[in-house]
Amino acid sequence: MTETVLSFDHVSKRFGSFEVLKDVTISLKKGECAALTGLNGSGKTTLLKLAAGLARVSSGEVRTPGGIRLGYIPESFPRPAVSARSLLRSFGRIQGMAPPALDERINKLLEAFNLQDDAGSPLNTYSKGMLQKVCVLQAFLGRADILLLDEPLSGQDAASQETFIRLTKSLLSSGTAVLLACHEKYLLSALADTVYEVGGGTLRAAAATPQNDEDLYVFDLPGEGSVIPKGFDDFLRVKQEGAQALIYCRHGKGNDMLRALLDAGWRLKEMRHEKNG
């Protein structure tokens, strides 16, 4: 049985007489991604803060196993007059990372998010998108058992959004659980196993809406235990149904993946362009 890493047991949260969350019960397992959608002020950030232990529940209980490592991307990030590199280095040391590995990790992340040239500039000179990237990088620095992401893509360019999705997917496949608050449908579609709509203080399970404009490739698996090759950034999600693999890609971006799978002996059964939403 997959281990539950976070559970909300009849949790309510009140601010004065206003009850922002009412009797919420959800759980999150290792390697699972649950997404929260809903209007601004519906309680998504509060729910993430409760999960992080940064806010107190009014009633009920939030449970995590002891010694769990939490990564958190807050909804906003301050602009101190220190450089991104120096701030990330400090955060890494505070997490207990050793300098050579830490510097290597920082360089890799800065490069992945195309921030290496500005890493020495103070954060108070950064644009909103650049600042959001630093906010994301600090959460990806060390290994986390649970990632709590509050509007992680806000203001980021398309390339960084794709990098973010790729990194998050790789963390999910290595067992990190993700609780995500966002509005972007393609992000829900790319990452979420479960989507909850937050509103009126309650959580309602909603379908993970597929992204507008995507291609679906249906393959016959070449044999039992076939593994889908890694390294295709434009995978949105992959499902296995019996002896078939259903691979969703951004529209028009599946060529490399298609070529690699055909070379690996996979057989394309069906391909269609889906417009949803």
Binding site: G71, P78, P80, G142
Partner: peptide, 11 residues
């Protein structure tokens, strides 16, 4: 925000 992150990073 820095305090929140530090609390989580320091556990």
């Amino acid at each position: 925000i820095v305090s929140q992150l530090l609390q989580l990073k320091l556990h």
